[in-house]
């Protein structure tokens, strides 16, 4: 497992994807932080994070698209799956590599609230609580992107499908609000609310540490992880 983790992590920085991802992430977060925290002088870093959620569905597909699709395209999955490692371990190694590449810009971002303390009082607990939720949400999207990558042979297709699915998840609250209440509409609405990944973030943005949302995110990570394992296993049977 560690062999796959190290190889995948290194490969992000062999082919520039890792650098591009980190650079864009930092540019966008830096831009919003300049606007909210420096120009308008809000002391809440949560506002910045809340405003930058949209970069997930632009940047995460770039990171995850190659994960399994590229292996399948270049037939290197034959090496992984004929080696004495289980599919669970292969998927875990790959997922942890994705998470590590994602955490690099996060480590840089983690210094921003500290920077703000130079200029006045900052509620650090709220800021870091929010950052934790931000990272967990990112990890949900990484798991989702990895799962979609495992379904196809083409990294480009994986990127576009991930982008589409994540976009729908972002728009889910607006989509749900279009459905009338009561009867079948109410049932549909509550089903759709399961997929409102971003609305779990609202309380964090308001400075509240919401444990149910944390559990909700971790559940999604486990679901997509398990789905990825299943999709790789299933491929052998057909």
């Amino acid at each position: 497992m560690s062999a796959i983790y190290i190889r995948d992590f290194k490969s992000f920085f062999h082919n520039m994807m890792g650098y591009v991802f980190a650079a864009f992430f930092l540019v966008v977060v830096g831009f919003y932080m300049t606007a909210y925290n420096l120009v308008y002088a809000y002391s809440q870093f949560e506002y910045t994070l809340n405003a930058t959620l949209f970069i997930f569905f632009i940047l995460i597909p770039i990171l995850t698209m190659r994960s399994f699709a590229e292996e399948r395209k270049s037939k290197t999955d034959q090496l992984l799956l004929t080696s004495p490692v289980t599919v669970t371990q292969v998927v875990l190694g790959k997922y942890l590599a994705l998470v590590s590449a994602f955490l690099i810009p996060m480590v840089v971002i983690a210094f921003y609230p500290l920077l703000l303390t130079q200029f006045g009082d900052v509620n650090l607990k709220a800021a870091y609580g929010c950052l934790i939720a931000f990272i967990l949400m990112g990890m949900v999207f990484l798991a989702l992107g990895m799962f979609i990558s495992s379904l196809t042979e083409s990294p480009i297709a994986a990127a576009f499908i991930s982008f589409g699915v994540m976009l729908v998840m972002f728009l889910m609250p607006s989509i749900a609000s279009l459905i009338p209440d009561g009867g079948l509409g109410g049932v549909l609405k509550s089903i759709l609310s399961w997929f409102q990944i971003t609305s779990g973030f609202d309380s964090f943005a308001g400075g509240i540490f919401d444990l149910t949302s944390i559990v909700y995110y971790i559940s999604w990570i486990i679901v997509f992880y398990a789905l990825t394992v299943q999709s790789i296993q299933k491929r052998r049977w057909c």
Binding site: R7, S11, H14, N15, S74, K75, T76, D77, Q78, T82
Partner: peptide, 12 residues
């Protein structure tokens, strides 16, 4: 196992 197309990572 050596498959028909050797499973090589081109960037390594």
């Amino acid at each position: 196992y050596l498959p028909e197309i050797p499973p090589l990572y081109m960037d390594m």
